[in-house]
Design a protein around this nucleic acid. Structure first.
Length: 626
DNA sequence: CTTAGGG
DNA sequence: CCCTAAG
């Protein structure tokens, strides 16, 4: 007998959604060495099963290795949930897919629609760019959405407790007890106004929706966005964002920080390519034997770096010679001021080794321009290359982003399971935004000239052409799997280096992923984190991660204490990070023995000119310095 | 190449 | 984000 344990949809738009790949599990292969075998079959439109082609099998294997999560249910069945969208990134993050597992019997589909609805939401929030997607908040469909939400909340998905228990062990992560302190954010207690503020803090944009349920739901999804709630230390229960305090035994990735390097030898391969995420906490084990050779390197230094802040080494920073730039700046004779702005302007005018502003003819787009066009820019009448299929910059209010993620990510997610009941919420948003886009670009080929200007700001143009219309040149996977935005426009520097062009605002889910990564691998192993948490993310270099973490630290230590002032509403225009995340950042920082970026001006002022005695005195007081 | 830190 | 020094 065969049981469908998971459904993975290969299509990315309604046009090709007729077929789905069904992963079946055949029980007669129950053997010790290989207890679970997946077969692939394709369900044609008429419902018959067609054996999968080799390509599909390969594809499924690929998926399995990269983003699938094995769920072990109490009845011993094992499910695999794969997602095609960006959640490729979340190799180590369990993905909630109970709803999918419930899909095993189509006849019960109607009866379980509640659970399935919830699945839709879960899947949708896996989309990391979710919060970036602009939507008009006061749409006429709000009422409809609310109703559906109510239904959802009335009946939580079956089996969630079970898998929650199992997945929660994956990330029990070394949280101190104070996580109980402020860790609970009860959305129920917030007023509409507060909810709106929280919404803004979460998604970075205002909302005018008055409906509490809607707001709570959205905020919940936003906070847990991109990775399963149970994967983080946040958990959402009945509109409550709670921190996890659960800490049972866990023996998977988190062991990196454990003592015994040999424990869990074969089951965990954190960095190996296609490392399986094996969750054996429930006593069930999926044995995928082919992998216990690969992890040699990943063990290194696991034992030696327990991140314990030995209090004499905490404050020791790497000594650093003054940089060239510093010397340059310091020795600038008659600049009159050291405001720094001046220096950069000097460099801009061509003095420095590299210039920040490129002359327009120096631009050489990475990808080949399809054509050129005369344009008079600043009256110079230069030839400006058309660059197609390159979108630059993704400001929060970018319709293109929405289009993509609606049809590729969320659209897919929602129609994943729910065909019977209407796909409210996202679907409706989708339609609304679709219309918007159509208005925006009726031809679909509105191409903006590449605007080369000084340091961005006014070059927020997006080439929203072929992404929408021309899908033929892409395999079904590439379109959304490769993070949909690999082509960052970079400009060549004089030294031959490439400089990225645009600031890409960190999305909330990226932040969450980063925090997760830090909690797993420790702050400092940025390349590891980059590989694990952002594998397909071509932007976000490890340096970026580091920088962002630094910013997060700063934010968490400054903004956190002054939390009472009901969301410092207008102050933060840029990146309002929800307090829970900041909380976690802070506790992680503590855990990893990070020192508080204290401002100690008096110490700084002394330097080592000649007042060594006083300096040492201070050091004695603060036994953590030097 | 990766990390840490300053700008 | 960019740059650069240090491993």
């Amino acid at each position: 007998m065969e049981t469908v344990v998971g459904v993975e949809e290969s299509g990315r738009s309604e046009l090709e959604s007729a077929s789905a790949i069904v992963i079946t599990r055949s029980d007669n292969t129950k053997q010790i060495a290989d207890p679970v075998v997946y077969k692939l079959a394709r369900v044609e439109g008429d419902g018959r099963l067609v054996p999968a082609t080799d390509d599909e099998v390969m594809e499924a294997e690929f998926l399995d290795g990269n983003s699938s999560v094995h769920h072990v249910l109490d009845n011993g069945e094992t499910g695999v949930c794969t997602l095609d969208d960006d959640s490729f990134d979340e190799e180590f993050m369990p993905i909630d897919c109970e709803g999918l597992l419930n899909f095993e019997d189509p006849s019960t589909q109607g009866g379980r629609s509640d659970a399935l609805v919830d699945t839709t939401v879960d899947l949708a929030k896996l989309n990391p760019q979710f919060e970036e997607i602009p939507r008009s908040e006061s749409t006429p469909v709000d009422g409809e959405i609310d109703q559906s939400l109510d239904i959802k909340q009335a009946d939580p998905p079956i089996g969630s407790t079970e898998s929650e228990a199992s997945t929660s062990t994956m990330c029990a992560s070394l949280q101190p007890d104070f996580s109980k302190l402020k860790g609970e954010i009860c959305l129920d207690n917030l007023s509409v106004r507060e909810l709106q503020a929280t919404f803004k803090a979460t998604f970075g944009r205002e909302t005018s929706v008055k409906d509490k349920q809607w707001l709570k739901r959205r905020i919940s999804m936003g906070l847990s966005n991109s990775c399963d709630v149970s994967a983080t230390t946040f958990r959402i229960e009945n509109n409550r964002v709670a921190k996890k305090v659960k800490r049972e035994d866990y023996n998977n990735e988190d062991e990196i920080h454990n003592e015994d390097p040999f424990d869990g030898f074969g089951g965990r391969n954190v960095r190996g390519h296609k490392a399986r995420n094996i969750n054996k906490s429930a006593g069930q084990t999926i044995q995928l034997e082919d992998h216990f050779s690969g992890s040699s390197k990943s063990m290194k230094s696991d034992t030696s770096s327990p991140h314990i802040p030995s209090d004499d080494n905490v404050g020791a920073k790497r000594v650093r010679k003054p940089t060239k730039r510093y010397i340059e700046e310091a020795s600038e004779p008659d600049s009159g001021e050291s405001s720094g702005k001046l220096v950069s302007s000097v460099r801009s005018s061509g003095h420095g080794p590299r210039t920040r502003v490129r002359p327009i003819h120096n631009i050489q787009p990475v990808s080949k321009p399809l054509g050129t066009r005369q344009d008079s820019l600043g009256g110079s009448g230069v030839e400006i290359p058309y660059v197609s299929r390159i979108r630059r910059g993704r400001p929060r209010e970018n319709y293109v982003a929405l289009m993509e993620f609606q049809s590729y990510g969320m659209g897919m997610a929602s129609k994943h399971v729910t065909k019977s009941h209407d796909d409210h919420e996202f679907q409706s948003d989708n339609e609304i935004e679709n219309q918007k886009v159509k208005v925006e670009s009726p031809t679909g080929y509105i191409q903006q000239p590449v605007l080369i200007k000084e340091e961005g700001e006014n070059e927020r143009y997006s080439e929203q052409s072929e992404d929408l219309n021309n899908e033929s040149d892409e395999g079904p996977m590439n379109s959304y799997a490769d993070d949909s935005d690999d082509n960052i426009l970079t400009v060549p520097t004089a030294k031959g280096g490439m400089r990225r062009k645009h600031h890409r605002p960190w999305t909330l889910s990226e932040v969450v992923k980063l925090v997760e990564g830090v909690s797993r691998h420790g702050a400092g192993r940025w390349s590891e984190i980059k590989r694990i948490a952002f594998p397909t993310c071509s932007h976000r270099t490890s340096v970026d991660l580091k920088d962002k973490w630094r910013n997060l630290l700063r934010a968490s230590f400054t903004q956190l204490p002054a939390d009472k002032g009901v969301q410092n509403s207008k102050k933060q225009a840029s990146i309002p990070i929800p307090a829970p995340i900041l909380l976690r950042v802070r506790e992680l920082a503590k855990l990893q023995g990070h020192i508080i970026p204290h401002v100690r001006p008096d110490l700084r002022a002394v330097k080592f000119g000649g007042h060594n005695s006083s300096n040492r005195h201070v050091n004695d007081i603060r036994s953590g310095f030097l």
